[in-house]
Amino acid sequence: MKSKLVSLVLLAGGVLGALGAAESAPAPCCDPAKPAAAACCAPEKPAATLAPCCVEEKPDKPLTDRSLYQHDAVWTSDAGRPVKLASLRGQPVIVAMFFASCEYACPVLVKDVQRARDLLAPEVRAKTKVLLVTFDTARDTPPALRAFRERFELDENWVLLRGADTAVQDLAMLLGVKYKLDARGQYSHSNLMTVLNHEGEIAHQHAGLMGDVSEVAKKIAGLKSGI
């Protein structure tokens, strides 16, 4: 598993190149002029030294066996760019699954995440990403996700992704999120906020809506960078 993942990271540039996603350096998602893609880049490094799509942030250190970043599907951001979860490595991440046409729970879930972020010290908040992954592989196209970002005024620390059905199912299984498409086209789903540490391991989970999110903030503040 580990060795395969390492080779995956090393090969990712070639893979994306083969798919026609990266035609020239720097790759689209590393373009410093496109702030919406910041999450998949390592901001402290100059873009010129980054490989296509910046996935090999720490190529010499394999992922831990509890890292969700072993989930190596290629997702699409609301800016239409290819993203791997492992590109979020190196900082705390709050993950939630949602869908953009959600009538009730998802807006509340977003507010809950915002409340948790507001409890963080500014310097921690600036280094904490939020990852929202949609269940709705049919309707949540990049433009639909962009509209969601605009509607909730989500800044560049929020990463909005869509993926293949199997990728969504895998991520839900790894997070323990239950979901189901009902007859009206709405998804019933767990309202679950997951904190990932710098290595992508689950550090904390918060279930339910409109609850006390102080524990989420406390866990994030207590996370130490292991790399």
């Binding site: 959600c102 009730y104 729970a105 199912q169 839900a172 299984m173 999120v177 239950k178 979901y179 189901k180 019933s188 789903h189 767990s190 309202n191 679950l192 279930a207 339910g208 809506l209």
Partner: peptide, 13 residues
């Protein structure tokens, strides 16, 4: 395959 469609509590509805 879809065992995780069986909901208990803490769901949106």
């Amino acid at each position: 395959d879809d065992f995780n469609t069986a909901m208990t509590t803490g769901e949106s509805r």
